[in-house]
Amino acid sequence: MQSYNLKHIKELEAESLFVIREVVAQFEKPVLLFSGGKDSIVMLHIAYKAFYPAGLPFPLLHIDTGHNFPETLQYRDELVARLKARLVVGSVQESINNGRVAEEIGINASRNVLQTVTLLDAMEEHGFDAAMGGGRRDEEKARAKERFFSHRDEFGQWDPKNQRPELWNLFNGKKYQGEHFRVFPLSNWTEMDVWQYILLENIPMPSLYFSHYRECVNRKGVLLARSEFIKLQKDEKWEKMKIRFRTIGDMSCTGAALSDASSIEEIIEEVAAARQTERGTRADDKRSETAMEDRKREGYF
């Protein structure tokens, strides 16, 4: 007998499809935030399905910190060409040049926080009224409280104590001119779901996710890859290690993990056995207990 029961990955996909279509139906000028990380890759994959055989009805927005892994940029450009998508780039370097933000100083200087200003400026410049992000509720405790449709005021701020209740599949995207929404179609996915879906759908991934040899420095337990952005401190040295990245952000704050996983199957095995959250390797979350919430309030991803 035919079973009328959707398996969980397909149910999550159906939910994300619905949310992405709802964004296009409710907003005038949506955009999809594309970082080149696995979550935004999966979100884009689902978005493409949502409108097929029509093309993507919105552009992709990449906030380029200038500290990206070269592999990320290459992957981004190939994917954009393959999907015939439109790409808008917001440049943190430009924000610095224009005096909108000042470069951080100190040994752990990063452009992570600066991205928020560039993001909000890009949204304003292009008149985007909804930005879809790959954030998931299982990633971080402040994100566990996030809505699918998350309202931002005219300053792009998030007010976590005063969020609109969100019931059933009825998403309230009403807003005033100048305000915008962040939308998280993958809210209910876990890291494991994302990898399982990548395997199921056979989605090509950036090489950074697979095990490779790279020179890294061990800074208080975070393995940072060698680049012009990382300056060695006293008693630190570059060491060749077999690593992969569990999340991909800036070269200045994304830590690598020692790993032999060289295929999606092996990554899944590793994720299943992992005893650390994926963001455990992110230096940007380690700044304080509420680092994520503080940044999100200001308008971070």
């Binding site: 969980h8 990955i9 149910e11 399982q196 299943a272």
Partner: peptide, 11 residues
């Protein structure tokens, strides 16, 4: 985990 077991689960 990479066999169909995980993909066959209900939510």
């Amino acid at each position: 985990f990479s066999s169909n077991g995980y993909l066959d689960m209900e939510l």
